[in-house]
Nucleic acid binder design. Structure first.
Lengths: 340, 340
DNA sequence: TAGTAATATCGAAACGCTTCGATATTGTTA
DNA sequence: TAACAATATCGAAGCGTTTCGATATTACTA
């Protein structure tokens, strides 16, 4: 296709090795030569072939980003924002993100089959078989918002427990203690941690009896959704008519919760406070605006790339887990009148 | 790293060319040889090097997907779903999507600099300079939901005009004719088409006086947002107090519109109908659920990959524009009582 | 100023595939 | 059964880089 390094070398009157040195900015090159070569490069708009470079140097400059297709197609932009973060950070390293969604069928992404990446980021839950396979393959892997028991890997997480604790504390401060908990996807580590955070904070606030009473929770293995939110709210409300607040495992669930309450004329937050988690796009524009635990999604994506880079450069270092802090964003849905 | 084709060849007692033929499933290979070689391949878990393959065959199996970072980070999952579609379709061709967000600064993605892709998909608007540059470079390009005047390119579009026409007709049928139009990003071709659709349909319905009266519209070059929606609604309402409906250029804008109306106690749809466009995630869970023109986002992404593949295989064919149909999804926000 | 270190450049061997042309074998046709 | 086509396999030449010595030049040190 384009012009090659050989031709550039000839035009500049130097060897290809010299051109290569100019390109990579390492080794010794005199100023005059460097300028001379660079001029030709610019003039002919020369761009080195990635393939050749990869082949010769045995590194690709690519980062594989794996995400389950159900996550990628989920309505709320959670993993998408993580992807964005990774992409932004990758740009800093001049690396490319090769995206691959995987289904449940455990078909290896092509880039993997052809070892076209220096390392892999996995965001969210994926098929169980995939990760052991990758590890065995010796490919550097970083997990974002996921975990596999007993797998020594670099991970990026968020402080799920702390997040819900803050939410609970915020409610307790308003003298709201009859707090229910609604959610799905209970298989996911983050979800479990969120529930634990709820129990811990309730225990501490002296409301352990509530947090350990099954009447106050609706928790299923089904994928979180607005439906789960609606149904869960209905169930809990049936069991506990004088409920004061509902904490949802994520905003999607909370949307369902809001929907149910609205439909049944239960005033938010006057009669019922609602808190979500993730602080995704629509939390702020929901009706009423939804109090939610903000997750630094973009930062998580960036952290993943950083961790991966470090692992690639230093394959023998100890495995790390980077847990990013979260933040409670208080909006109307939980600003109970009782406070004022 | 791994085992190479040479070693496989030796182990199978054939030449590397034969192994290559087995791999690519073309040319003549006897059944026995094919089995023999495949056995070794499986046994040693051999996977050919993408780099070497690319270098030798001069094709990458990669598709570049370019999206402006503002789009990628936009809250609603519009372009993200297009990306998903492309990814799914790419899987069918065993191709990889290399994702690259670009900022306004027009820094070339690395994959582009190193011609690491067979073709490129651009989703949404990007820097003006980028596209001519790519064309000049001879790289196959497909535009999804974007256009550059006078650029002969393959494109994937949606029927924006028809979409808004349907919305208008739906309102007119309910004897609602005082319809305003709110939106931003007016520089974007799709947005302009949506506005045109509004005018055309209003003209046809005998309400041209309204559609051509500036009082009935709020249209800016600023990026669409809920803020635009709020502000636009406020402005139009000030100018036309007896307004009956508002069509927004997209759902994000419509969310702002709903927010404003809700805040000011204007009942939807009893006093005011609202229609959005795109039918993104939160449209269905909005309060009230938002009538919106459904855009087949995933299908658009898939169509882009198909178009690109066709172009790559046949570089000289005429340029095509694939316009996908849209659909009006009627929800509560526009089911005026007048109808019943 | 000889001897060594730093600087500058180059040639050539990889890197791991694909593919073309050559050669050998088998099958088909008149 | 001679002649030719189809089938099967192989060797070797690329593909466009990087990188490892080797060599040549210049600068510095004692």
């Amino acid at each position: 296709m384009g012009i090659t390094i050989k031709e550039i070398a000839k035009l500049a009157g130097v060897s290809t090795s010299t051109v290569s040195l100019v390109l990579s900015e390492k080794g010794y090159v005199s100023d005059t030569t460097q300028r001379k070569v660079q001029k030709i490069i610019d003039e002919y708009n020369y761009r080195p072939s990635g393939a050749a470079r990869q082949l010769a140097s045995n590194q690709t400059g690519n980062i594989g980003f794996i995400i389950s297709d159900v996550h990628l197609s989920r309505s709320e932009a959670f993993y998408t924002r993580i992807l964005l973060g990774s992409e932004l950070e990758a740009r800093n390293y001049d690396a490319n993100i090769i995206l691959s969604s995987v289904g449940q069928e455990y078909k290896l992404p092509r880039f993997l089959k052809e070892k076209n990446v220096d390392g892999i980021i996995i965001a969210g839950s994926v098929s169980d078989e995939l990760i052991p396979f990758l590890k065995e393959d010796g490919c550097p892997v970083v997990l974002i918002d996921f975990d596999v028991d007993g797998m020594a890997l670099d991970k990026v997480a968020m402080d799920n427990r702390r997040g819900v604790q803050m939410a609970v504390e915020h409610l307790l401060e308003q003298k709201i203690s009859k707090i229910g908990f609604v959610g799905g996807s209970y298989y996911h580590p983050s979800i479990r941690e969120r529930f634990e955070g709820y129990q811990i904070a309730m225990d501490r606030g002296g409301n352990g009896d509530i947090a350990h009473n099954k009447k106050y929770r609706y928790l299923t293995e089904d994928e979180t959704s607005t439906d789960i939110g609606e149904k869960g709210t209905a169930e809990i409300l049936k069991a506990v008519p004088d409920l004061e607040a509902i904490i949802c495992v994520n905003d999607t669930t909370a949307m369902g919760c809001l929907k149910y309450l609205l439909k049944h004329g239960i005033e938010i937050p006057a009669q019922m406070s609602v808190v979500g988690f993730d602080d995704v796009n629509f939390a702020a524009v929901a009706h009423p605006p939804l109090t939610s635990v903000h997750v630094p999604k973009v930062e998580m994506g960036m952290a993943g790339v950083k961790l991966l880079k470090e692992r690639i450069e230093n394959p023998d270092r100890a495995f790390q887990t980077r847990t990013l802090p979260v933040e409670l964003v208080i909006r109307e849905s939980s600003m109970s009148n009782k406070q004022n």
